[in-house]
Simulated assay, not measured.
Amino acid sequence: MEPVFPSSKKSDTKQQAGSGGSQRGWRAELWDVIRTVGIAFIVLLLLQIYVFNLSVVKGQSMEPTLEESERLFVNKLIYDFKGPSPGEVVVLKDPSLGPDKKEYLVKRIVAVPADTVEVRGHQLFVNNTAVNEPYTDIQIEDADFGPVTLNADEYFVMGDNRHAGRSKDSRYFGNVKKKEIIGRAEFVFWPLTKIRGL
């Protein structure tokens, strides 16, 4: 009597099914990764439009506080709940350019609505009181300016670099409307060796 060997058809079928299943599993995993990355990208895009922005410092107008090419984290939501305060560093649309051009500046708020601003004898005065400015390393070298009184919803901005002609600010392009202010610069996040709050 000849020995009877079990048929290999079932095991072959299982192997083929297993191979097909692994193919489907690989595709499903790839789709999950693509979907996750896509959702993360959309969320990040929405956050950047409405909540925060990442900005690069250009020029020397904010030295010594900020140096060229440093990266800033900008809070875009804060001014939906409050107005800018004196001393805050903000990012704003350049008011000297047309509405179609999207150039941005980094400046410091030095006066708010109803304040009177004046530069006299190389010193900044707000409401006829000399302002203590520990963020600068030199007196204002430019010519005297003002006095100018701010209307409702107007802000006066200046760069921290007070060397002559180094900062294009409200002395050049006038008072800034709140709607022109993009947000408050919260901290420097790059380079890593210079991470700090503002």
Rank of each mutant, 00 (worst) to 15 (best):
P3R: 07
F5K: 05
S7G: 14
S8K: 12
K10L: 08
K10H: 03
S11T: 09
S11Y: 05
D12N: 15
D12M: 13
Q16F: 09
Q16H: 05
A17C: 15
A17V: 15
G18R: 01
S19I: 07
L30K: 10
L30A: 06
V33C: 08
T36P: 11
T36K: 03
T36E: 07
G38S: 12
I39Y: 12
F41V: 08
V43Q: 10
L44N: 09
L44Q: 11
I49H: 09
Y50D: 12
Y50P: 09
V51Q: 10
V51R: 04
N53A: 11
L54E: 11
V57R: 00
K58M: 06
S61N: 03
S61F: 09
M62Q: 05
E67S: 15
E68K: 01
S69L: 08
V74K: 05
V74S: 11
N75S: 15
N75W: 13
K76V: 04
L77G: 06
Y79I: 00
F81S: 08
G83P: 07
P84Q: 02
P84I: 08
E88V: 13
E88G: 10
V89E: 02
V90N: 02
L92G: 00
D94L: 13
D94E: 02
S96W: 02
L97N: 06
D100P: 05
K102Q: 15
E103A: 14
E103I: 01
Y104A: 09
L105W: 06
K107D: 00
R108V: 00
P113T: 13
T116Y: 11
T116Q: 06
V117K: 01
V119H: 01
V126E: 01
A130I: 14
A130S: 07
N132L: 10
E133P: 07
P134F: 01
Y135K: 07
T136V: 04
Q139C: 02
I140K: 00
D142E: 06
L150C: 04
Y155C: 00
F156Y: 07
V157M: 01
M158L: 06
G159M: 09
G159N: 11
G159Y: 08
D160M: 03
A164V: 05
R166S: 09
K168P: 00
S170L: 12
S170M: 12
S170F: 14
G174I: 12
N175L: 02
K177G: 02
I181P: 00
I182G: 02
I182E: 03
I182Y: 01
I182M: 05
G183L: 01
G183Y: 00
E186W: 06
V188G: 08
F189C: 07
W190R: 14
T193C: 15
K194W: 11
K194P: 00
R196L: 04
G197S: 04
L198S: 08
